[in-house]
Amino acid sequence: MLDDRARMEAAKKEKVEQILAEFQLQEEDLKKVMRRMQKEMDRGLRLETHEEASVKMLPTYVRSTPEGSEVGDFLSLDLGGTNFRVMLVKVGEGEEGQWSVKTKHQMYSIPEDAMTGTAEMLFDYISECISDFLDKHQMKHKKLPLGFTFSFPVRHEDIDKGILLNWTKGFKASGAEGNNVVGLLRDAIKRRGDFEMDVVAMVNDTVATMISCYYEDHQCEVGMIVGTGCNACYMEEMQNVELVEGDEGRMCVNTEWGAFGDSGELDEFLLEYDRLVDESSANPGQQLYEKLIGGKYMGELVRLVLLRLVDENLLFHGEASEQLRTRGAFETRFVSQVESDTGDRKQIYNILSTLGLRPSTTDCDIVRRACESVSTRAAHMCSAGLAGVINRMRESRSEDVMRITVGVDGSVYKLHPSFKERFHASVRRLTPSCEITFIESEEGSGRGAALVSAVACKKACMLGQ
């Protein structure tokens, strides 16, 4: 009897593995994704193909990295998701002549009506938060230079001027797309009239992360975010950046690689679950690469896999709870928690219980395998993109072996128990001629924006502006 049951459990697990095998990517698959990513990057950089390229390769006008001589107080704003952060950054000489960066910050959550109302409502709310922060720190009387981390696709015309191309991540505030974001912020500050600010720089969160990590390690020339969304930036040779005049030196390019796949480059790798996630998203047909990796989508992918296993009578005796059938019910943090389970399955059992399920031991094991399959594919897909960037940098610099540091931020990278190990191992397999160091950014977005502002202020002083 026991043997029969054991055989049935083994057969069930084997069927589960057959279904989950769809998520496995072979090294040849990853090399294919990497080569296609490089081709799209090239198209994004070139003037004649930029418009139709899915990977936009947006110039950021960040050319210099901090040298350690900029000092002063800077205000930093960070808008990239449902939370908005205001930070005071003091850049100065530390002990023994070292450079020191001290920060104080406060988080504000953005109400739904500000995210989806008008641009005026959104930026009025942001300036209200700045006003509140300055009151708390008794700094209303000071006109501070301000660095703005704005983590949406922007076409820069200068370091302090950028046109919002399109909202992502659930934002829909009308009247912002096609307009200068810094102008919208300046107008809102003017409307309030109770404080003055000098907006000197606007950067993407990947750029802010790279600059913040450069402060720790001067070989950091790539910034990457794996959180709600997924994106990367890197220092490109100016001669390859056709959208900006000049051939000397390097400029940081914001790849906006989340949109890779929007022209069909990933079609052969998309599964039924991916198509369902895409169809029910706020932007169907867009940001397809990001939807395979980002935390906004990972939990939902797992939920759809679990429903398939229920329908195949391989999980929960073929019956799903009402909660499990509800879109968004299986949160991405559950994926991390399930994979963090120590082996007694308590954590998995508790999560499934909150979803109205009474799982068996085998159910718990199957749910864990589903989570591992989805998150491992995410790590491997992400590795193909980064390997594409790094191999490109090595080739354009004609280096036999390139040493490089990548600064990384984002909740999936930082909080998932195995993502970074799987990701690092896969990147290294795909970049055999590179020695890569990964560092995690601390308060990256805010500190990085302030350091970019410090560079901009120093330049302005040198130019006598």
Rank of each mutant, 00 (worst) to 15 (best):
T376E: 13
V33H: 00
E372D: 05
R7Y: 08
F423K: 07
M197R: 02
G295P: 08
T326E: 07
S396Q: 13
L122V: 02
T376L: 10
I19W: 09
T342A: 06
M37W: 01
E322P: 10
D78N: 05
A188F: 00
R155H: 06
M34D: 11
D400C: 13
V33E: 01
S360Y: 12
L164G: 03
D132C: 03
L165Q: 04
E421L: 10
F23A: 05
E216K: 00
G448I: 01
K15I: 13
V277T: 02
E120W: 07
D198R: 14
L276Y: 14
D187M: 00
T326G: 13
M107K: 05
M210F: 04
A188G: 06
A450K: 03
G249Y: 09
D274W: 01
Q138F: 06
P66Q: 12
K32S: 12
V455M: 15
M115G: 02
S383P: 05
E93W: 06
L165S: 04
G227F: 00
R325A: 14
A378K: 05
G81Y: 05
S263V: 10
F330S: 04
F260P: 02
G446I: 14
M139N: 06
L270H: 08
F171W: 07
A188T: 06
E112R: 09
A378Y: 04
K140S: 07
E322R: 14
G261F: 03
K140H: 01
S69I: 07
R429V: 13
G175Q: 03
V408E: 04
L266Q: 14
C364A: 09
S54Y: 05
T405S: 15
A454E: 02
K169T: 02
K13F: 15
V401E: 13
V412W: 05
G318T: 13
N254Q: 04
D158P: 01
L301C: 05
E128Y: 13
E421A: 12
S64G: 15
V374D: 01
G81T: 03
L75C: 11
E248S: 12
L301Q: 15
N283L: 05
D400L: 10
K90T: 15
A449E: 01
V277K: 09
E443K: 07
P66N: 14
K102H: 01
L451I: 08
Q24V: 12
A10I: 10
A188Y: 00
H105T: 04
V154Y: 02
V91K: 10
R345K: 13
G162K: 03
P153F: 02
E237V: 10
L184M: 07
G261K: 00
E28M: 14
S441L: 04
V181M: 06
E17K: 05
K136A: 06
M121Y: 06
R36L: 12
I351D: 11
D194V: 03
T361L: 10
M87D: 01
S445F: 00
R43L: 07
K172G: 03
E290Q: 00
E265H: 07
S441R: 05
L146N: 03
E268R: 02
F84S: 03
Q106P: 02
Q286Y: 14
S281C: 09
G94P: 15
